[in-house]
Amino acid sequence: MSIRVGFASRSSRIGMAASAVALVVLAAAPFWGGRDDLQLLSQIYTYVALASLWNLLAGYAGLVSVGQQAYVGLGAYLLFGFAILGGVPPLWSIPLAGVIAALTAIPVAALVFRLRGHYFAIGTWIIAEVFRLIASQVSVLGGGSGTSLPAHIVLAIASTRQLRDFLVYWIALALVVVILALIVLLLRSRYGLALKAIRDSELAAACNGIDVQRTKVLVYIFTAFGTAMVGALIFFQRLRVSPDSAFSVNDWTAFVIFITVIGGIGRIEGPIIGTVVFFALRQTLADLGTIYLLMLGAVAIVVMLAAPKGIWGLIVERFGWQIFPLERTVVRDTGSAGAAKRA
């Protein structure tokens, strides 16, 4: 009896169709939305990307980093450095920043991978602080107070402000799509099998032939690559960079952890749901000031108590849905088996 193995399920077919429709609608946003809408959507995309990458790191590889702002800031500073010092067009700087960050992550990994668990978390934070202090020493990029992207570089991107807004928006959308697509492909590959196994049980993964440490290092490097590209993009949108904003633990790690945890850690859909919830809360409550942060904390506590695996984790347990086709499903070819029996 032969078998067939595929990835798609009914829920993933619906999910992918819905995603395709959403992508078309979002790609057309410049034609239906205002400038504020585009900026808000771009911000949502960057958080979906950051949270998806952090989820890969913490949710799958079990590497709880509190220092991913190191790579957000590195990407940002690389983009500004290339543009101001080398005259590299910002668009080219984004992938370039990713590659350099990935290379930087190799020696950093050699250092922080000597630490485990909580120590790893603290270690990554310290590395990020070191990055911030180094950035504040680069006087040609404004030192501690930061710098702006020179006008001639901004003008070279597109002739009108409106066109620039559109371009930046599409780049943000393209980047989040590319990052999500890469994560889906990664999780469907052999490495994805290893990652999911490590997520579920490191001990069993090791005893089934998976080189756990090597897999984790590769994920760490990949995550640095993606995170730095997102960082470069965020500060390209802002046109201004400073050490405190680029290496902010609050903006680039604390919120990202919040998003991933309430959305559903260790599930690719989690960060997307989490970002939507986070921005819904922010848009409705941000005017309240400090109370807003208290309410974020309260939401996090409620979700952790009521649904420890996040909103999507609850849905998976209840319905077994998957938006992205990641799970291998095996189907027996009963037709041929029946034929063989008759013969």
Binding site: A197, R199, A204, N208
Partner: peptide, 21 residues
């Protein structure tokens, strides 16, 4: 120690692909 979030089949694929090289 099952890989709880994966299917039973995928549990075996992990073992066979990695453990069996």
């Amino acid at each position: 120690l099952p890989f709880a979030g994966m299917s039973v089949f995928e549990n075996l694929v992990v073992a066979a692909a990695f453990g069996g090289r």
